[in-house]
Amino acid sequence: MDISEILVTLGGISLAALVLWYFFFSTRQTVSAVSAAGGLQEVDITVKGGYAPDVIEVERGKPVQLRFYRDEENSCSEELLIPDFRIRRDLPAFKTTLVELLPQQAGRFSFTCGMGMLRGTLVVK
């Protein structure tokens, strides 16, 4: 093994480890819903190559309004799926799409793009 092989091997392995950590194990941004008048819990979510914030905490038993603003034209994010609430919605580019749901049970419910690549989690407490 010459010096460049050793460098490439070490570099490659640490890069792989970095990829795994970055995508799977790093801490995510969590946001709690803001309760407006009338008990409606509102959350603004920006869709641009992912969901920001992507972990959303809401309270059980109160209506939730998720406001998805899709800040890109990329087709990956054009569809939104929240399977546990039977929601499939087209998100028009550069527009806000409102999605309402009423969480009855506590738990973690994922929302994803049409192909399940982009992900976020709705945490019902």
């Binding site: 641009k48 992912g50 890109e72 990329n74 990956c76 793009c113």
Partner: peptide, 15 residues
């Protein structure tokens, strides 16, 4: 751009 946007959100997709 899509890959970069995804990367910032710690999301990776086909792009």
């Amino acid at each position: 751009t899509s890959a970069w946007n995804g990367f910032r959100h710690r999301a990776a997709n086909m792009d």
